[in-house]
Write a protein that binds this DNA or RNA. Sequence first.
DNA 1: CCAGTTCTGAAAATTTCTCTTCAAGGGCGT
DNA 2: ACGCCCTTGAAGAGAAATTTTCAGAACTGG
Lengths: 300, 300
Amino acid sequence: MPATVPTSARTVSDVIRVRYDSLTRAEKQLADSLLENYPVSGLGSITVIAENAGVSTPTVARMVQKLGYKGYPEFQSHLHQELEATISSPIAKHDRWASNAPGTHILNRFADAITANLRDTLSELDTPTFEGAAALLRDRSRGIYFVGGRITGALAEYFFTHMQVIRPKTTLISTNSSSWPQHVLNMSAGDVLVIFDIRRYEQEMATLAEAARANGVVIILFTDVWASPVAKHAEHMFKVRIEAPSAWDSSVITLFVVEALIEAVQSSTWAETRERINSLEGLFERSRLFRRPGRQTRPD
Amino acid sequence: MPATVPTSARTVSDVIRVRYDSLTRAEKQLADSLLENYPVSGLGSITVIAENAGVSTPTVARMVQKLGYKGYPEFQSHLHQELEATISSPIAKHDRWASNAPGTHILNRFADAITANLRDTLSELDTPTFEGAAALLRDRSRGIYFVGGRITGALAEYFFTHMQVIRPKTTLISTNSSSWPQHVLNMSAGDVLVIFDIRRYEQEMATLAEAARANGVVIILFTDVWASPVAKHAEHMFKVRIEAPSAWDSSVITLFVVEALIEAVQSSTWAETRERINSLEGLFERSRLFRRPGRQTRPD
DNA sequence: CCAGTTCTGAAAATTTCTCTTCAAGGGCGT
DNA sequence: ACGCCCTTGAAGAGAAATTTTCAGAACTGG
């Protein structure tokens, strides 16, 4: 029974999955263990792998040969190559960028910065904050207000646009602070105020937060690691990394957190949301001429 | 001469860099090789590492001991741990996420999606498109117009807000299509129209593009991989990946490209931009009360 | 319940890796 | 230029990993 040589186009995990049904009990146990924390689980020696999976070393040796590799070393070297492809800066392999400039291309430097920001932001973010904020935004008995500064106003608008589709009682507060007092007047206790205040903090933003807070409004704050003065009034705070190889700060990760929050709110209230979306779609299609070419709503 | 045991808080690469000056010629050669494609370059056996660096195996064994590791296996296991931390979804190490949900936490799934989107988008993006668009946006003799759809309007606004600081003659076109004809009337040949048109393409957007094109306006388009109908009128097109584990599409990577473009334009016209920024800062500071707590402008 | 087949891990055999020793090579101060 | 000391790699000893062998265990079909 000659083992099929794995196509070079395939990853090791693909090979394992394709051949999974033809594996024996101990081998399946091993395969599961390998896939569990793939591909890092395959880094150690054959002995370590075997121990982690709770099987003997001969089982490992047999299986990799069964999968089409000459031996464990060859198997592992495939894994290493995959790791290399995954690890290296997203476009490291596309040397057209690198070869083009003396330093690295702007896109590359941005990509590195964004990746680092993502990692750092997530490692500092804790579940209670995220879940707490999501729970507040999910609660349809509360009114939700969004406000941002000169730069972050666009993020507030983006967040608002989505939440407006998902739930009622959402309001976008203009970046222009002259309208703020009226909005505070409209807020009731238990309402939620989502504030974006990053770097160049706006003093008036803290005043707004304080006033709202005094009215029993709960505040969710998006800020950078230095924390805006709004922080002391905020119930939930997202400290986002904004470093970029640029004269400006990056809002990419802030948008990332916003989108994750949108999904967290949306997915837990899908039944109710679906109805709103359908109505909305109807309104859109009646008032315009186009049909949508791609999916916008969830498949099923 | 007891070697300093590397602080557990430090990464292997940190240890190497800290001790770099105390390394010998062959060891530096080895260190360079290791850092070159860190940490993947350290995956193989001591023999492979030595060959790749062009040194002998004893050199490797000696250096890792000099760095404070008991031997090569220990050194490598540190590398493996780092890889594991790096590879696995940014927060996998913070098992508080994983333990919290049956599947993976939303943040983790989003992080994975965004990383994949970034990689795919960059690999499909070519230099001429990017440089070409940057050159157009840099040209102060051209007027620049920004327009987006219901969702992407916020991105257009974000782009506009930054470009407005950098250069004159920038205009944000409302998402509401009723105002579009007047804007077309104002455009002159050579002006640039930046269009965001993603998924749920708006038919009127293609009409706008066609009309503008007829007036000699150059179009830069941000769209998804399916390409909006505007594509046939566009001079430069950015096909961005927008997949997300969500009922909605992700704009994170689109924002990423926008920010990279902003920096590309900005950095090549810094002298002129600086003056604008300074004036603007003056205006801001005169009209408001605050002082900025962090840096906003470039350090030097 | 039995015979045949397949699977599995202990243990040995083999290969490879890692480390130590040691002599040659090279730099530096005198 | 000489000698000292540090550096370096070749070679071998020792350790570990990998593979093979083989006998018992587990399963299957009658």
